[in-house]
Each structure stands twice: as structure tokens, then as C-alpha cells.
Design a protein around this nucleic acid. Sequence first.
RNA 1: GCCCCCAUGGUGUAACGGUUAGCACGCGAGAUUUUCAUUCUCGAAGCCGGGGUUCAACUCCCCGUGGGGGUACCA
Length: 443
Amino acid sequence: MRVRFAPSPTGALHIGGARTALYNWLLARGSGGTLVLRIEDTDRERSTPENVAQILDALTWLELDWDEGPISQAERGGRHGEVLASLLEQGLAYRSTATADDVKAYKAQHGADKGFRGAEETEGAVRLRVPDDEELVVQDLIRGATTFRTVHLDDPVIARADGTALYNFAVAIDDHDAGISHVVRGEDHLSNTPKQLLVYRALGATPPAFAHLPLLHGPDGKKLSKRHGAASVQELRDAGYLPAAIRNYLALLGWGDADDETIISTEELVKRFDVSRVSKNPAQFDVQKLRWLNGRYMRELGDEALTAALETHTGRTGLAPYVAISAEKIQTLADFWPLAGFFLDGPADDPKAREQWLGEDGRAALADARGALAGIPDDAFTTESIDAALRAVVEARGAKAKQVFQPIRVALAGTTISPGIFESLAALGRDESLRRIDAALAR
RNA sequence: GCCCCCAUGGUGUAACGGUUAGCACGCGAGAUUUUCAUUCUCGAAGCCGGGGUUCAACUCCCCGUGGGGGUACCA
């Protein structure tokens, strides 16, 4: 089995593209086949080296490796020209200067459902001759057979007037030459497939097996965009998601197993993935579920690996003491700093928190707490001893726990949200804790 | 307009002719609790509509409706 993945070099790797890449990868890895990466760079505007590099970078970060490629248009141009000349010579294609308006006029005359048939000229773009009335059947691994009648099909332009190949022509030749057996791509290509089938036929080649994936939408049913959380793999990376979590989420977004488990390792995914079970419905990207899943993956990482990931993501070091006590409170790597940054950068400034918890009562409680904490020797400043000391303060004051704990929290973190208060004090150390409490008391 | 695809709760999916229509996220309630979370328990919420076929239809067929895609000298 030879599977090919052919992203378009638009710069960012869109989530839909990432899912397509994943499915191709799972298919190839699951079958012990080969994954061929080809860049669909027949578009002259978009195919910049920078854009191609970005796509490759995103795939690498997602840990979706490939066996061959990337193959690009530059190295294929000669071959495309060869085939083109041959088709022209055989009369399977012809030159035409017909424009989109000419096609419209043709339909106005012959009927809206009649495909455009041009007259042969000596110059212009190259169009493929489409048979009069024939049924072209796309055998799709997901949808079964889809029939297109050639009467409805316009003679497609396969090359520009300057002889450079267009997508529908180039893909077929490239895939055929690369010996591709499976083409898995977005549903937006389904309607183009009959044109490609015609190219395969002109080549005298057997077409590969196709699988057209449903498209992805944002929460509002519209096209996925940045305001939906993230639209590209690059954005997901910046937002602090883990590749493994994204792979798991994407796999489940449009595919389901008979035993419906939610958390599936990539290894397990490779074993179980089956293209024919891919859903036919377009799916909406749900950031909430991705966040939840990512949280699970982060906690499964363990303190050491999570610390490493967080240090890479934040660009800071010495995070280890704060990671373990924060892990259960964050869902993405980006969630960490707002929660635990105060350990290293000092308390945040939240006037509302101060107002609510450092009023007269709060300060009194804080003063008592300070006394209790100061009574703990420096080498015994542990979660346990802090716990005991503070609970004694709560009891002595006849207060509710939060009436004592929240003022301390605000003194240390500046906000009302932080890791556990005993753990936070212990992580900060006796001296720094007392210093921050004094500072809060002095305000 | 024309061509093609699709249709299970808010979201992603499972069941594929006979089930109280399952699971997960989210949501609501409760338990745990020092905040926020985590974890656990319980709950609300679904087969687009109409015709067939069949003893029986979410499952098969047709029509309608709705959504999506294509219709470029883009990919």
C-alpha cells in the first residue's frame, strides 16, 4: 500500500489538513505501507519556500513523519509537459482560448446541465476532451460508488497557455508515477475526481482507491477560523496543546470505533484505524473537548515530562517545584503561567481580590496566620506542618477555613486562584512567604 | 442555475431491521473541598419531515426540507 498526503502550501496547516494528514499517516502505518508526501504547489502564488517550510514544520511537530518526499512541482514540470504533448498529439486534449464567459454562453445555449465542449484552436490553454455521455464511477472507501455523468462535465483546463500544469492534471500524473494506491483527501475534492479519472484513462493507468473525508467546521457551522479557538496546527501549538492529544482528538473527530473509547494512544490508533469507518458527516471542531482531552494527556505525562514541556513552552527554568501542585488545575501548557507565574514573578495585581479578602477581617486573619507560620522552623516548613499551624489559626479564630486561607492566597499570589495554599506556601519557602505576607499587611 | 455529497441529543460518535437508542465533551444537581480545579455519583437532552417496503425501520427505497462541496488558465 502506498498512501499519499498532499497538503496545499497555504502557509498554515489547517486543522482539517492536519486531520487528513493524520488519517493518511494512520492508514500507511497501520498497513505497513509507505507514506508519500507531495506538495500541491501548482499554484504559483502560494507556493513559496516559506509556506512549504511551515507545512513541513507543522507535520513534524505533530510527529506525523513520511517515508518519501516531499516531492514538488519543480521536479515534476518536465514530466507534466511530456504527458501534455502526448495527449495533444493523440487528440485527447486540445488548445482553446475559451474563457469562463464563453463557457457560460455555451451553457445558456445548450442547457445549464450540459458540460462545455470547446473547439480546437492553435493557441490558448489546454483542455481535456470529455467523452459525450458516459458514466464515471468514483469508488470511494468511505462513501461507496459515486457516479458522475460526463455530459455534465466541462472539458477541464489541464494546463495554462504557457504549458504549466493545473492541479487536476498534475495530481493524477504525480500519483500514478509515484505508484500511489490510496488517496485520502477532503471532500472538497470529490467533484474533481471524475476529471482526474479521465486523466488516468488518458494515461492508460488504473486509478487508485479514493477516500473523501468530510470537511470540518467551527462551532457556528461556518468555516473554521482563529476566533473559534484555533484554526491551524501552529495556533494549537502556541496555545499549549500536546501533539498526542491533538492526534487523539482529531482521530475521533470524524471516526469512531465499535468499542467507543475516548482516550486512545497513537499506537492503539494505528492498530484500530479503519478508513471505511470514517464518518460521512461534516464535523464541528470543539475546543472544549480538545481542552479536556489535553488536560488528561498532560496529567498522564507525569511531573518530570510535564515540567520539561512547560519549561520549553514558557521559556523559563526551575519550574519543577510548582508543576506538581499545578498539574490538576491546567488544561493546556499556556494555562500554567497565569496560575503559577506568581511563584517566580511575584504576586499579580488584582484590586478586587485585595478589596474582598484584605479588608479589616482579612488582615487580622492574615496577621494571625503570619504569627503561626513564623513559629514554624525553617527546616520544618512543610505542607504538613503548615496545614497543622493554619488549621489551628482557623480554630482559634472560630472562623471558616476560607476566611483565613483566602487572605493568605491573595497575599502570596495577588489573586484568588492558585494551587493549594499549603503547597504554595511550602513551595515558596518560609522566608519568601513571610515577606509577601508582610508586604500585603503593610499596604 | 447546474452537478455531487451528507443528515442520531448543543457537540463528536456507537448501534445498522427487533436495544429502556450506548459512550465522551459540554450542561444541571450532589459528594469531596482552603480558592480554582481534579475525582466520584446522579440527571436533563437525540433518531430532520412525509410517504413507502416489512410481522417489525434510526437502520432499506422514494420525495421533500436543511446543511456542505464543486462548478477558475486556484488547490
